[in-house]
């Protein structure tokens, strides 16, 4: 018998700290698998955000820099410019990327920085205890939208992929989900493609991964996957928003 599914080399063996059933763990693994398959682990440099993934440097088996809240794309820019042949990626949550770090992500994308951004969207601030995120759904209750997000005063969930796709420079932008095995496979393909683009020097790549937060959503992990499918996907349609190959076709 041959092993068809095992532990990726680019993931350290230490167990992660995420709550049971949190899909951060799946996304970590997909990133590690992509790095393994492209054989770039020794060249990889991760940039960890502020957010639940602040300890990402403890999990990825590669060099890493921990960035201030929202600044990961700027830090990644600095690293990549200093070491253009290395594979540099950020791993950011929705508060980090789409709120405090909106300027950084837009401009890194607009410069076409040859980096890969893994954007984990779970519609809530997990780290600080479940406050409203820029991606919180209309009507969704959080600790800072106790009556449900009111679009009249707090606006609508920011659709990062759609927004960044209005820029000319990005090479690859896709939104995927990890709520079931089929979608996990698709997510893996997108993440791998993004890294592949970087390896080939194609420019800025971003994969938004819809993710769960069972603890702050107040659901069992399995309920949370269902909630993601039923509520988040309609608000954040899955798909590839930008791909250079499609452009050249």
């Amino acid at each position: 018998m041959k092993q068809v599914f095992g532990y990726p080399e680019s993931l350290q063996t230490r167990p992660n700290h995420y709550c049971p059933g949190c899909t951060h763990g799946i996304i970590h693994r997909l990133v590690a698998e992509a790095i393994d398959e492209l054989q770039v682990r020794e060249k990889a440099i991760a940039v960890a955000p502020v957010g639940c993934a602040v300890l990402a440097y403890n999990y990825f088996n590669c060099d890493a820099q921990q960035a201030a809240h929202g600044r990961a794309p700027a830090v990644a820019t600095g690293i990549k410019r200093a070491l253009p042949d290395r594979i540099v990626f950020t791993y950011q949550g929705d508060g980090d990327l789409a709120s405090i770090g909106m300027a950084e992500i837009v401009h890194a994308a607009n410069r076409g920085e040859n980096i890969t951004v893994i954007f984990v969207n779970n519609a809530i601030y997990g780290m600080t205890g479940g406050q409203m995120a820029p991606t919180t759904l209309p009507g969704q209750k959080t600790t800072t939208s106790p009556y449900g997000r009111d679009t009249a005063t707090t606006g609508y969930p920011i659709q990062v992929c759609e927004m960044l796709s209005t820029l000319k420079a990005p090479a690859f932008i896709a939104r995927v989900s990890v709520h079931d095995p089929k979608n996990v496979l698709k997510a893996k393909e997108a993440i791998k493609k993004a890294f592949e683009y970087q390896v080939n020097g194609k420019g800025f790549t971003l994969v938004e991964v819809l993710s769960t937060c069972p603890t702050n959503w107040g659901m069992t992990p399995v309920e949370a996957l269902k909630w993601l499918e039923n509520n988040m996907i309609p608000a954040f349609p899955l798909g590839t928003f930008r791909s250079l190959e499609e452009v050249s076709k």
């Binding site: 820099q65 700027a74 070491l83 290395r86 300027a103």
Partner: peptide
């Protein structure tokens, strides 16, 4: 060398953090 006009002072210092951390 590399010159980047960053999107803000905040971003610029963080680029420095990245490049400095990468040994430059």
């Amino acid at each position: 060398g590399t010159f980047i006009q960053a999107e803000s002072e905040v971003s610029a210092i963080n680029m420095v953090y990245g490049a400095g951390g990468a040994g430059a």
